[in-house]
Nucleic acid binder design. Sequence first.
DNA 1: CTGAAAGCGCTAACAT
DNA 2: ATGTTAGCGCTTTCAG
Lengths: 340, 340
Amino acid sequence: MQHHKLATIEDVAALAGVSIATVSRAINEPTKVADATRRKVAEAVARTGYTTNAMARSLRMRRSNMILILAPDVGDPNFSNILVGLETEASKRGYGLLIGNTQNDPSRETDYLRFISSNQADGLILFTGHLPYGFGQNAEETRLPPMVAVNEPVVDQPVPFVGVDNFEGARVATEHLISQGHRRIAFIGHSPGREINRVRESGYRLALESAGIAIDPRLILDGEGTTESGRAAAELMFVRDALPTAFFCVNDATALGVIIALNARRYELPRQFSVMGFDDISFASFVSPSLTTMKQPRHRMGEAAMELLLAMLAGEQPKSQKVLLRAELIVRNSVSRPNS
Amino acid sequence: MQHHKLATIEDVAALAGVSIATVSRAINEPTKVADATRRKVAEAVARTGYTTNAMARSLRMRRSNMILILAPDVGDPNFSNILVGLETEASKRGYGLLIGNTQNDPSRETDYLRFISSNQADGLILFTGHLPYGFGQNAEETRLPPMVAVNEPVVDQPVPFVGVDNFEGARVATEHLISQGHRRIAFIGHSPGREINRVRESGYRLALESAGIAIDPRLILDGEGTTESGRAAAELMFVRDALPTAFFCVNDATALGVIIALNARRYELPRQFSVMGFDDISFASFVSPSLTTMKQPRHRMGEAAMELLLAMLAGEQPKSQKVLLRAELIVRNSVSRPNS
DNA sequence: CTGAAAGCGCTAACAT
DNA sequence: ATGTTAGCGCTTTCAG
C-alpha cells in the first residue's frame, strides 16, 4: 500500500522465482497454473503488496471496466437513488463508475464522450433522455457505443431502456382511489407535451373506464410537475366549482401543492379530500397528512440498467429494448373513503 | 467517433506526414511546434477523429486525471449536492470523477482502494469521516495518497478538511432569534456524542451569553437528529412545563419534528412559537410554516474541496488543514417576534 | 505447466 | 523544430 513506488508484476515474478507470464496467469487464470506455483505467487503478491496496474491492463486488453454515467443533474435525488442501484450492480461485477454531470449543456455532453472515445469507459448509462450531443448528427453512420437509457427513454433512437411502468402505476393508483369508493377523481397532470404525462393520464383513464366511471374533462387539469403548479391547479378547481372527492397527481411535488392549497383552505384531510401522489419522494412521509403514493423502484432500476449494459458488453443481444418495472403502492394517510 | 477501430497517434502522424512525437507535441505543447505543422496535425486529427488513448497516456505519465470519491451513501441528498460542486471544479480542470459507495462497509472501502493503488485515481475525496479500512492500521508507516475530507472531518488524522463553520452558523442562527426579541430559546440537539452537536450547541451558548441571557439547562435537550426525535423533544418540553418561545434545532429534520408536534397541539406558528433549523434541506421550504434555517453552502464545499485536492496534486502544500465555509441565514416563515 | 517476446498507444529524453 | 527510440506494466500468442 506504499504510494510512492508500487510493486510491479516483475517484482512479484522475481520474488516468486517465476516469469511474469506465470504471475499474470496465477492471478487471472488460476486453473492454468500448478498449485505449488500459484501458492508461491500468492505469497509474493502478499509480501510486495502488489496490485495490478489498471492502466497497463486496460491498455493491453482494450477495455477499462469502467462505465460512464451521463446525467443532467447529479444533485437530483431521483437520480442519486438510481445511482445507488447502478453502483451496487457495477461494483458487484468489478466495474467502476465514472460520473458525468452535463447540466443539459451540449458542450459538456460532448466533453464527456472523450471518456468513451479514449477507451476510458466501456459503456454508457444515459439519464438525459437524448443521445449526447456529438453522437446526434450522424447516428446512422456512427457506431454507437454500448449504452442503456434509464429513467427517461431516448427519443427516436433504438437505445435499450429501463424505467418504471407509468401506465400500470397510474392505473393501480387510480384503482386504489376507486376501491376506496371515490368516483369523482381529478387528474392533475404535468405539462401536456411530456410523455410521462400522457402515459400516466392514460392509466388513470383506463382505470376509470374499467370501473364504468365516465371521464369528466373538467376534472383533468394540466400542470408543470411542480409544487406551485399543483397548488394553482387545486385553486382552479375551486374557482371552477367542479370539485372531485380525490386528487390523483402526476407526481408527489404536484400532490404536495394540492395538499398545501387544501390545508390553506382549512379543509380537513383526508376526511374531506383524498390526495394521491406518484414517485414517493423523500418528504412524502413528512407532509401532513403523509402522502399515499406510488413508489418508484429506483434502486432496482439502477441495478436492472447496469445488468443490461454489462450483458451487452459481454456480447449478448438485449432481449428487449424496454424493461419496465412496476411501481409499488405505498398507503399512508392522505387517502380515505370519500366523505358523504 | 467510430467505435470499433479507433485512430491512433500513428494514423495521425502518417496522415500529417510527421512523426508521432510531433503529433504529441502539437496536441500537448502547441507552442513547441511550428504553426504550419500544427495546422497539418490539427487537420489530420479532425479527419481521423483521433482522441488520445487515455490508458496509454496514463500508463506513460503515471497519473490518471481521475479522482475517487468515497462516500457512505451516494443516495444521501446532502452528499449529492456537494457532489455537484466537486464535479464542477474537477471537470473544469480536466479531471474525471470515480464514485465509490461504501455503505460504511469496511470491505467495500478496501475494495475501492484498488483504484488508488492501481493508479486508476490520483487522489481521494472522503465523505466517510474516517480513513478507508486498509489504511487505518499503519497510518504512520503507510504513505497516504493525496486526499481531502469534506463534510465530515477525519478523526485523529491529519487530513485536510473542507466543511461548514457550525459554530459560527449556530451563533448566527441564535442571534437571529435573539434579534427578534426571543430570550427563552431552546436548543434541541443531536446525540450527545456527535461533534456536530457539541459545536452547534457551543455557538448557541455563546450567542446567549454575548446577549447577557442566562443559559437555562431545562431548555437544552438531546435528540438524535431525526424528525421523530425532534417531535419527542418538543413533547418533553410540554410535559416538563419549561417552555421556550423559540426552538433552535440542530438540524432541519429535528426542526420538522418540532413543527409537527406544535401543529399537532394546535398552536399557531410562528405566532405562538418560533422554530429555527439548520441545513436547508429540500423540503424546508415546503413545510408549513416554511422553515427559517441556516443554509449549508454545499456546492461551494464541493468546489473548495476539489480545488484543495487538485492543488495538493499539483504539489502545493495545503495552506491550512481546515477550510470552514459560512452557512447562510435563510429567512422564511417559522420565526417571528415572540408573542407577549 | 511455464517462459520468451511482442506490442497495446503514448510521452519524454535525447539526438539532430 | 522535428525525429528516433525507450519504456510505462500488462496480457497473450507461440514454443517448449
